[in-house]
């Protein structure tokens, strides 16, 4: 727990799982981070995954807290945010996967700028983190490099 006390590892939005207002602030944080990285550089992205239940109830689990589909690159980024429950639990993890577009109904498929890719699996970068000033910087660098790469 000591790392929560040092300024460089300060956990951001520590009550986001308990307070819906704080949760929305955390979502806005990711939205602004993505916009700063991409929208200002004319790299469009949009939310893709459904996180609302059929009765309109919003999801407040942080899984995912944010995602973006980049139609020009035909890539997805998914951010999972958590609060660590064990002291030795890794605070930052990531992996690459693919979203099987061809398995989806046409209306649910992401729409790439290049129509030839419309049935191709979408490469996806997934980051799972306890958000802190430290891990936010790791995520920012990773997302930027991956989308541009």
């Amino acid at each position: 727990m000591a790392d929560r006390l040092t300024p460089s590892h300060r956990v951001l939005f520590p009550t986001f799982l308990e307070d819906h207002e704080v949760y929305q602030q955390a979502v806005a944080y990711w939205q602004m981070l993505f916009e700063a990285l991409f929208s200002t550089k004319d790299i469009p992205f949009q939310r893709y995954y459904n996180t609302v239940s059929p009765d309109g109830e919003k999801d407040y689990t942080g899984n995912p807290i944010f995602d973006g589909y980049f139609p020009r690159q035909h890539k997805l980024v998914r951010i999972i945010q958590f609060i660590a429950t064990e002291t030795d639990q890794p605070r930052f993890d990531f992996w690459e996967d693919a979203w099987p577009t061809a398995e989806l109904d046409p209306a649910l498929r992401p729409i790439p700028h290049d129509p030839a890719k419309s049935l191709e699996p979408v490469p996806e970068l997934v980051i799972s983190l306890e958000l802190s000033t430290d891990t936010a910087e790791q995520a920012r660098a990773l997302v930027e490099a991956w989308v541009r790469g």
């Binding site: 893709y48 995954y49 459904n50 996180t51 239940s53 059929p54 009765d55 109830e57 899984n63 995912p64 998914r78 999972i80 429950t85 064990e86 639990q89 890794p90 993890d93 990531f94 992996w95 979203w99 989806l104 109904d105 649910l108 997934v126 799972s128």
Partner: peptide, 21 residues
């Protein structure tokens, strides 16, 4: 905990406490 079911498209990942994907 899914109330009223969940509609596509959705993807959720439940990570081990060991990390490493």
């Amino acid at each position: 905990g899914a109330r009223g079911g969940l509609d596509a498209p959705q993807r959720r990942s439940f990570l081990s406490t060991q990390g490493k994907g």
